[in-house]
Amino acid sequence: MSDIFEQIFQIGFFTAMVRVATPLLLATLGEMFSERSGVLNLGIEGIMLLAAMTGFSAGYFSGSLWLGIVVAAMTGIVFGALMGLLTVTLGLSQHVSGLGVTLLCSGLAFFGYRLVFGQPSQPPNVAAFESAPVPLLSELPVLGPILFDHVTLVYLAFLLVPVAAFVLYRTPWGLNLRTVGENPHAAASAGVSVAWKRYQALMISGALFGIGGAYFSLAQFNAFTFGVISGRGWVCIALVVLGRWDPWRCAFAALLFGAVDALQLRLQSSGVIDLPFQVFLLLPFLITVVAMALVARNARAPAALLLPYRKEER
């Protein structure tokens, strides 16, 4: 047994944990913003998939991976705004609207990919983002390789955590956003436009879903496949609950999930446990459900989550 532990919990494991957690962290922070404003954004899975496709295509044809990231973010903003049109302006069911956006985006991703690339025998690929070690810091023992030897997007994602916390808790914009999610009537009487705030939050969430999705096709892998997201977006909905709608705790939840994911990858490749590899693939989803069962009772969602806001109703 101790052999297994030695094989698994090496520095490489923690490096993988940070790498795997990054796209989930981006998407989880995005979902946190939209839920803090009072809108559950179930478009997450589809937006991530579509942005993984558009981002990859842009990177492939322009040769610039960063342009791919920008296109992915724009894709997310567009469909975040669509989500706003449905749930904020029209006040439709957030559950069904989100599922609709996910189904639409997934369809568009498959359709668009086939339209652009046809059915090649070899899937097209790009030279993915390369690791950009931070000078000096990456030389540190243990912490260096774990924290400071990654692609740039990883640093940006983790830098986003304090930024998000600052914006949410220390700025008038963040205060207004939280009020809109807790008590939209109070926010409206203080002169805040509830609708515009929710649009902003949804577009931010879309952008972060988009970047998270493109991380898969441009950094983690170097190609787009139909199964590139396969449930990772849905997991982020759970991570927001586990992270109690707080940027720091969300980051912790994403890292925890990253650890589970990295662990199953290592168990898979170590061959120590002789089981079909799908057993390891299901582990992260099973553990997420168990974790939800443990914390959900005490979770307190933003009070106005799922409730459409109409001016005349009090």
């Binding site: 449930g231 849905w234 909905i237 989803f285 939800m292 069962a293 959900a296 009772r297 979770a299």
Partner: peptide, 11 residues
């Protein structure tokens, strides 16, 4: 356990 049905059924 008050686990959200959307999340649980999807997982």
């Amino acid at each position: 356990f008050k686990v959200d049905d959307v999340v649980a059924t999807l997982m």
